[in-house]
Design a protein around this nucleic acid. Sequence first.
DNA 1: ATGCTTTGTTACAAATCAGAAACAAAGTTT
DNA 2: AAACTTTGTTTCTGATTTGTAACAAAGCAT
Lengths: 235, 235
Amino acid sequence: MNKGVILSIDDDHDLQTVVTEYLQTDGYKVLNAYDAESAIKDVSAIKPDVILLDLVLPDGEGLTLLPQLKAVTSSGVIVVSGKSDTTEKIICLEMGADDYITKPFEMRELSARIKAVLRRTHEQTPQNTKSTETPKDEIIEFGEWVLDRAQYQVLDKGGQSLNFTTGEFKLLEALIEAPNRALTRDHLFDLTRDGNFDSYDRSIDIQIARIRKKLDNNDVIKTVRGVGYMYTPPK
Amino acid sequence: MNKGVILSIDDDHDLQTVVTEYLQTDGYKVLNAYDAESAIKDVSAIKPDVILLDLVLPDGEGLTLLPQLKAVTSSGVIVVSGKSDTTEKIICLEMGADDYITKPFEMRELSARIKAVLRRTHEQTPQNTKSTETPKDEIIEFGEWVLDRAQYQVLDKGGQSLNFTTGEFKLLEALIEAPNRALTRDHLFDLTRDGNFDSYDRSIDIQIARIRKKLDNNDVIKTVRGVGYMYTPPK
DNA sequence: ATGCTTTGTTACAAATCAGAAACAAAGTTT
DNA sequence: AAACTTTGTTTCTGATTTGTAACAAAGCAT
């Protein structure tokens, strides 16, 4: 079985080995590149289905490689980065990356993401049905607001931006993705940031308060005492 | 808070001690096993949420234990190994391990991985005590009421919330999950809170009384004299 | 019945929880 | 470096939740 061709561009040979072996047993053909120059060559030669791009490359910034790659091929690109920095993530996604994964990651997660990217990139090109269809909702409307995932923004229906910070955005997104379900602070913490949650941490509470304020103190986010918070679709 | 039950299978008693103490202060219940035989017994008896499996065990290879464990339970398994060998790691993951950690490791890392595994395994099987019923038993109807686990609420059939506190909710949930079975106060205490139950503690009684009141003094919760309480499905 | 034990009820006190505000720390931009 | 943004900490406060104590009621045995 060949599920697809993957080009892994990474300076870190150990990681390369692990990733390659795993993905091969998982049914993919895997090719390796260790620097930008050979990567570009490989890409135009073989047109892989998915490209794994580590941002730390020997011959310069991997970030500059991203647009070059997108120029030569329509492959899906998953950026691999050591930083779990959200702004970098956004930059990458804006530059055309299809997904973003931070080290250290688990092979299964990588595999799942590859599968997802493959599905998305292949959905766009099978015949000409309707190219307007998006696999995942980029925009979620709720009440008088709109959550725009493409731009990481929350807007009111007039199109006015509500100046959500990234942290606030992610938290709201996490809540909205599980409507009518009470999520613990611990869980919300997990979903929106790295690190460990300890029970005296009130930061989620604060952020909820800030979100509520920006949403005009509407009660879309209910507090579930002793548990956490819950989003309830308005109207 | 009880975040979950962990079974640590390890020959190395010193490591066991350190790990156990740390995880307990971290909010988990931790059980120990020192060889394959007792491990299997323990697993089928208690169905832990996560299993820590050290590959070096006295009575043979721990690796052969892995599939046996997966056969008896759906617990997440984290393999602990002295070798940082990648192929071994892959083998473990292919055999069904959910994660892999190499010695020496930091407690915080272990904790983070446990949390991640818990999250994943619980996403797959959300509270599946009865595996024969619907996979998502988020809502349990009983008599004229509904127990909604997603929202941590008890409602009447009209959809009106009965304002259960989280403590009351958990207690009712514990009872309902074991219908027609008398549960001791001790057990109920264990199921719903942390700390030690002492025999003069009447708090369970009080909470039962409050639940009954909110359920309109119906007799869904029967008292079993000298033992504790029992939920009997109405109608 | 008569004690004795167990459970239910009530009132009250203690503990816990979440919101708000003010402030501090960290990260960005200029 | 200075100004600004974003995020987290601390403290205070009111409200809810929970536990304790005392007593009443019910169950059980003789």
